[in-house]
Design a protein around this nucleic acid. Structure first.
Length: 364
DNA sequence: AATGATACTCGGC
DNA sequence: TTACGGCCGAGTATCATT
């Protein structure tokens, strides 16, 4: 029987700032991504639980958060570089407890701990992890333990912050049934609406709905995926991840349709991204530009070229793509970005999505 | 039929 | 009432090539 841990660092960015700045300890903390175009333009990246109690949450415009704040509330700009380096240290700790390990984001990971043999053993391990993270990094994490990644993730979310939730195999169905569909990983606003139209609000209703009925509005694939989720079915392994793309995006000082103004931004972002390309010894085959219009409509335009790692190839491709895009579209541009994908690594092992899937099918 | 390229949507953090 | 970041990955549809 598999035993999977999902570990999630609690309001990670805010916890890191609280840890390194004595003067803000115990206060509501809001970590902000400022776009730079006006004083408070931007969005909230995360807020600690004291700030959440005021109704402030991730994704909210900063000006809105400021209206909800009290005089104690601290607003800080995100220091992503610092967060990434601290994350790397914590992930090493997580990994040291696992038979196999999978980092899923800057503050989350799956640990296969099947060698614990019993849930009691896994629980003990989880408590050791929590203790070490508290001691070494001064923060809490929430942990879920379950027979697979899907349920472990839901379990870690069940009690936060500083939670530990264990879902035994025999309890999976009951655990999921108690939740609303939007608590399922991968079910957001659009899917909630689609399901509501079918009269489905609870995970239990989704689990009981026939595949045929779901397929009619959601399509075959999504229907099966959703139903599996509702039933707690997930055989996906805990495996190391390879990056599949790399991107940088930024907000322009003012909305514009001027080629030079937009290209200047893309040039700057490309140079930053290229540093990471060099550092990671990454090659790429596809270059894309990302354009967000003033009404927030998103566009991407890409082209695939010979395997390369050169900044020049990024810039030349981006220039061509941007020219073509502006010829076709008469839009005011708010944000612009650059992306490389179809990544190839130095050892020659290609890691496109297709190949990886093929490999996983083979391994099954 | 399989594979790849492209443009796009959805969702998480 | 409006307000609005910077990433990442999964997945879909469609068309072209082999």
């Amino acid at each position: 029987m598999r035993i999977i841990i999902h570990a999630d660092l609690d309001s990670f960015y805010a916890s890191l700032e609280e840890q390194r700045k004595d003067e803000i300890k115990g206060k509501p903390i809001v970590i902000c991504m400022f776009s730079g175009r006006s004083q408070d333009s931007g969005a909230v990246a995360t807020a600690n639980y004291k700030a959440r109690a005021l109704g402030i949450k991730a994704g909210m415009p900063i000006v809105f958060a400021k209206r909800r704040a009290n005089s104690d509330t601290v607003f800080l700009p995100a220091d992503l570089e610092y967060y990434r380096s601290e994350s790397a240290k914590i992930m090493e700790v997580f990994e040291s407890y696992a038979d196999s390990f999978q980092q899923v984001s800057i503050d989350e990971a799956y640990l296969d701990v099947s060698s614990c043999d019993s849930l009691d053993g896994a629980e003990q391990k989880a408590n050791e992890i929590k203790e070490e993270i508290r001691k070494e990094f001064g923060m809490t994490c929430s942990i879920g333990i379950a027979p697979n990644k899907l349920v472990a993730k839901m379990a870690s979310r069940f009690r936060k912050p500083d939670g530990l939730t264990i879902v035994e195999e025999k309890d999976v169905k009951g655990f999921l049934a108690s939740l609303a569909v939007d608590k399922l990983h991968g079910v957001g606003g659009k899917t909630v609406e689609a399901l509501a139209a079918l009269g489905i609000k609870a995970v239990s209703e989704l689990a009981e709905c026939t595949l045929e009925k779901l397929e009619r509005t959601l399509g075959k694939n999504k229907a099966r995926l959703l139903k599996d989720k509702a039933l707690g079915i997930d055989d996906s392994p805990v495996t190391g991840q390879v990056a599949k793309q790399m991107s940088r995006i930024g907000t322009l000082k003012d909305d514009t349709k001027d080629f030079s103004a937009i290209y200047e931004k893309i040039d700057q972002l490309s140079r930053e991204m290229h540093k990471k390309i060099v550092k990671n010894k990454t090659y790429f085959r596809t270059v894309s530009i990302i354009i967000i219009a003033s009404d927030l409509e998103a566009f991407t335009r890409g082209k695939t070229i010979e395997k390369t790692n050169k900044l020049e190839d990024v810039l030349d491709s981006a220039k061509e793509l941007l020219k073509d895009f502006l010829d076709e579209h008469d839009v005011m541009v708010r944000r612009a970005g650059i992306r490389v994908s179809n990544l190839v690594y130095e050892n020659g092992a290609e890691k496109t999505a297709e190949r990886k899937e093929g490999l996983q099918r083979f391994l099954k």
